[in-house]
Amino acid sequence: MRDTAGTPSDVELLAAIARGDRDAFEALYRRYAAWLVIRLRYRCADHSLVDDVVQEAFLAVWRGTARFRGEPGADVAGWLWRIGSRRLIDALRGHGARDRLLGMLARRRPVEEPSAEERVLLGVEHGDLAGALARLSPELRAVMQATVIDGLTTAEAAVLLGIPAGTVKTRAMRARRQLREELA
Rank of each mutant, 00 (worst) to 15 (best):
G162F: 01
R87G: 10
G84C: 07
V50A: 02
G127N: 01
S48T: 15
S48K: 11
T7W: 12
R109T: 07
H47A: 05
R109W: 10
R2E: 00
R41I: 00
R43H: 05
R174D: 06
L133M: 09
R109Y: 15
A157K: 11
R87F: 14
S137I: 10
K169H: 13
D23T: 10
A34H: 14
A165N: 08
R98F: 12
A5T: 11
G166C: 03
A132R: 09
T147A: 13
L88D: 05
F68I: 02
Y42R: 15
R43E: 11
L14V: 00
T153P: 02
R30S: 10
A146K: 05
G96E: 00
A116P: 13
L136V: 06
L183N: 09
R86K: 04
R98A: 00
R22C: 10
T170W: 09
E125G: 02
L121G: 01
T154G: 10
L121C: 04
G64R: 01
F68P: 05
L129T: 02
L102R: 07
A33V: 02
V143H: 05
I149R: 11
G70H: 08
W81I: 11
D10I: 09
E181N: 15
R31K: 00
V61L: 13
L101E: 01
V76D: 00
E117Y: 07
A157V: 02
I89L: 08
L179R: 08
G84N: 07
P138Q: 04
L88T: 11
T170F: 10
L179K: 11
P8G: 07
R2T: 06
R86H: 12
V61Q: 08
A142G: 05
E71R: 05
V37W: 14
R69V: 11
R141Q: 04
P110T: 01
A66G: 00
R82M: 09
V148K: 15
E139A: 04
L105S: 06
G123F: 01
L40M: 09
R2Q: 04
T167G: 14
R67W: 04
F25A: 15
R109P: 12
V54S: 01
A24D: 01
F58A: 00
C44V: 13
A66W: 06
R63I: 06
L49I: 11
D52I: 11
A60V: 00
A24E: 01
Q55S: 14
R2C: 04
R180A: 03
S48N: 09
K169I: 12
L14A: 00
R30L: 05
R119C: 08
L136Q: 03
Q55R: 13
V148L: 05
Y29G: 05
A146S: 03
C44A: 04
M144S: 03
E182M: 03
G162H: 02
R30E: 07
Y29M: 04
A175T: 00
V143Q: 14
G6I: 14
D21K: 14
L133I: 03
W79R: 11
H126P: 12
A15G: 10
E12W: 14
A74E: 06
A15F: 15
R67C: 13
R86A: 06
S115E: 02
R100Q: 07
L121R: 07
A74I: 12
G127T: 07
S9V: 04
D46K: 01
R176K: 03
E139Q: 12
